[in-house]
């Protein structure tokens, strides 16, 4: 988890939740595999067929603006995305990424350096991204939420706190 390598999928500013995961599916599609297939449907129809494990979605300003729908974070995770990097995130999207256990990194200085398809390496534990041998530092997650993140997302985290994680998981 602490090391992620993948190719860049680059998009612009204000990428909203409706194009990441359309509203019309939010009550009817819940299967992770199905959700993965719908990821970025209205933005980049190629994405869901060509994305590979560990790939990185790069956005401009205000990535994930709009709805509170967390499927917009989960669908990328289910599609195999290793991390999302943006100049800035909408507040709800950022929270949803943490809750989904999907790394969301704020790195405004990196956006112009990267092109679609290039490979980068992220070292979460050291707070750096390596691109063509150059290291870029991102602000570490606040301590209070690192735990959530380390446990793989909010729900596994709550299970740890409530000590229900050792119990049999009910269907």
């Amino acid at each position: 988890m602490s090391e992620i390598t993948g190719r860049i999928w680059k998009y612009g500013d204000n990428i909203n939740t409706d194009v990441i995961f359309p509203g019309k599916y939010t009550y009817t599609v819940t299967d992770p595999g199905e959700m993965a297939k719908l990821a970025l449907e209205d933005l980049d129809p190629e994405f869901s067929t060509l994305v590979q494990n560990g790939d990185i979605v790069l956005g401009g300003k205000n990535f994930g603006c709009g709805s509170s729908r967390e499927q917009a974070a989960f669908c990328l995770k289910y599609a195999g995305v290793g991390a999302v990097i943006a100049k800035s995130f909408s507040r709800l999207y950022y929270r949803n990424c943490i809750n989904a256990g999907l790394p969301a990194l704020v790195l405004p200085q990196l956006y112009d350096q990267l092109n679609k398809g290039e490979r980068i390496e992220i070292r979460l534990d050291r707070g750096i991204v390596v691109h063509k041998g150059v290291e870029y530092h991102f602000p570490p997650l606040p301590e209070e939420i690192i735990d959530i993140f380390n446990h793989g997302g909010l729900i596994p985290h709550i299970r740890k706190i409530l000590k229900t994680d050792s119990m049999q998981r009910k269907e």
């Binding site: 974070a73 709800l92 949803n96 909010l154 729900i155 709550i158 409530l162």
Partner: peptide, 20 residues
């Protein structure tokens, strides 16, 4: 303020949520 579905599930369970 708006929150995500998992966060609401966590409030169902614990009554609590974190904010900055």
């Amino acid at each position: 303020t708006g929150i995500g579905r998992s966060e609401m599930a966590a409030i169902f369970a614990t009554g609590k949520i974190w904010f900055r």
